[in-house]
Amino acid sequence: MTTRVKICGLTRPEDVEACHAAGAAYVGLNFFARSPRYIAPRAARELALAAPVGLAKVALTVDATDPELDEILDHVPLDMLQLHGRESPARVAEVRARYGLPVMKAVGLSGAEDLAALGAYEDEADQILVDAKPPRGAQLPGGNGIAFDWRLIADRTWKRPWMLAGGLTPANVAQALRLTGARQVDVASGVESAPGVKDAGLIRAFVTAARR
């Protein structure tokens, strides 16, 4: 089975083209205003419309309210919502019902004590994003370029499809896949030449390494 790759935090039309050319399955658009990868809904619309058929468009939001989600979806044609904040299982269910789109819930890990949180979302989310928990005082809930101990989830399974994130790069993604058994991976900072600036060569190298 081919590993499916999500490239998150696109801000330019050429990023969409690079992801498609490399063979990525998903592209992520970041609507968290404090992120260097933030994109406004109107600008995101242009990127989404430029995405070729078959390239899934995912909106990353952090504790977004209904009016904020309404604004995003009024402008941007999307295939999935990614909730990357402190949304409860009940909130995940609300969003899923309100918008009729698949919902991916991000859960941060730093130690074994965090594993129980993953199971809490299995009945509500369509997919789980297993990410590194941000360090104390971090300004971003994800995209910090740090990894967790992949052995924590070695050979674990969940009822829902899941995706591995956190500190992945072209150099380490193959090892991460071997240790965790993940079939999907998500990368943001690991394919950038500067914060928020994607590098087409790194995108290509990452997808190639993940599929190898």
Rank of each mutant, 00 (worst) to 15 (best):
49 L>I: 13
103 V>F: 04
116 A>G: 09
35 S>Q: 09
101 L>F: 11
82 Q>C: 05
142 G>H: 01
149 D>Y: 12
96 R>Q: 10
69 L>F: 07
77 P>Y: 13
79 D>Q: 14
105 K>T: 07
55 L>I: 13
103 V>K: 05
68 E>C: 03
125 A>L: 03
83 L>A: 09
131 D>Q: 13
66 D>Q: 09
145 G>H: 07
63 D>I: 11
61 T>Q: 09
61 T>M: 09
117 A>N: 00
45 R>L: 06
135 P>M: 00
96 R>F: 04
100 G>S: 06
133 K>N: 05
84 H>Y: 10
133 K>E: 01
47 L>K: 11
96 R>W: 03
35 S>P: 10
86 R>A: 08
91 R>D: 01
136 R>L: 04
108 G>D: 07
118 L>T: 06
130 V>F: 06
140 L>R: 01
138 A>L: 06
62 V>P: 04
116 A>K: 12
98 R>E: 04
146 I>K: 12
121 Y>G: 02
69 L>M: 14
59 A>R: 00
104 M>N: 03
144 N>R: 10
102 P>V: 00
68 E>N: 05
54 G>A: 11
87 E>R: 02
73 L>P: 06
85 G>R: 12
45 R>W: 00
72 I>L: 07
108 G>L: 13
94 E>K: 05
83 L>W: 05
116 A>L: 11
62 V>Q: 09
75 H>G: 00
80 M>I: 07
137 G>T: 09
51 A>T: 06
77 P>N: 13
123 D>T: 03
150 W>K: 06
63 D>R: 09
103 V>T: 00
101 L>N: 01
126 D>Y: 04
36 P>M: 14
78 L>R: 15
121 Y>D: 01
77 P>K: 15
122 E>N: 03
121 Y>V: 07
87 E>V: 02
60 L>Y: 04
84 H>E: 00
127 Q>A: 13
105 K>E: 00
80 M>T: 05
95 V>Y: 08
111 G>P: 15
134 P>W: 08
92 V>L: 11
49 L>R: 15
107 V>M: 10
48 A>Y: 11
99 Y>F: 15
46 E>Q: 14
72 I>G: 00
61 T>P: 04
113 E>G: 15
129 L>Y: 06
125 A>G: 02
80 M>L: 15
99 Y>W: 15
104 M>C: 14
115 L>T: 06
39 I>L: 13
37 R>S: 03
143 G>P: 01
35 S>F: 03
98 R>M: 10
86 R>G: 04
110 S>K: 12
85 G>P: 00
66 D>I: 01
81 L>N: 03
132 A>I: 05
147 A>P: 13
67 P>C: 02
139 Q>N: 13
147 A>Q: 14
50 A>W: 05
64 A>T: 07
129 L>K: 07
62 V>Y: 01
99 Y>G: 13
134 P>M: 05
